[in-house]
Simulated scan of single mutants.
Amino acid sequence: MSQHEKKKPVPVKQTEVKRTRRDRGELEAIMFKLFEGQPNWTLKQLVQETDQPAQFLKEILNELCVYNKRGSNQGTYELKPEYKKAAEDDTNGQ
């Protein structure tokens, strides 16, 4: 009989993981890229995708996005119209 005890790995709660803030410009670029691929995101999805603190993400989202309070995309963020246009111009100009 082996005297090997199996230690159960302690689950790490997501909330305990300290997320470090990226450079603001860098994060904005990542956000634009994400919104290019998918027009609507929940805060939870964005936190997972960017690995940024939710509070920091909200600050940037408030500047770049509109929050859908109702309708089919309720509870999601989407880029403000002026940013959508800019993103489209970028891709078409190449």
Rank of each mutant, 00 (worst) to 15 (best):
E49D: 10
K85C: 02
P39Q: 12
T20V: 15
F35M: 08
E28G: 02
A86H: 03
E88V: 14
K80V: 05
K80L: 15
L27P: 08
D51M: 10
D89Q: 10
E82M: 06
F32P: 02
K13H: 13
Q74S: 10
Q48R: 08
P81N: 13
K58C: 07
I60V: 12
E49P: 05
V17H: 00
L79M: 14
L34T: 02
K44H: 11
Q45M: 06
G71I: 09
E49Y: 10
A87L: 15
P53D: 03
K44W: 04
V66F: 05
L43C: 05
T20E: 13
S2C: 06
A87I: 11
L57T: 14
R70Q: 06
S2F: 09
K7F: 11
E26A: 03
S2G: 06
R19C: 00
D90I: 15
K33H: 07
E28A: 01
L64Y: 07
K13R: 14
P53N: 01
V47Y: 06
G37T: 09
P81Q: 12
G75H: 09
Q38A: 00
E82Y: 08
T50E: 03
E82W: 04
L43I: 11
K8L: 15
H4E: 08
E36D: 00
G71V: 08
K44P: 00
P9V: 10
K84W: 00
Q74M: 08
K84I: 12
K7E: 13
E5H: 14
K69M: 05
V47C: 01
R22L: 13
A87F: 00
C65K: 01
I30Q: 04
E28D: 10
R21N: 02
Y67I: 05
Q52H: 05
K69C: 04
P39S: 04
K7R: 09
L79I: 06
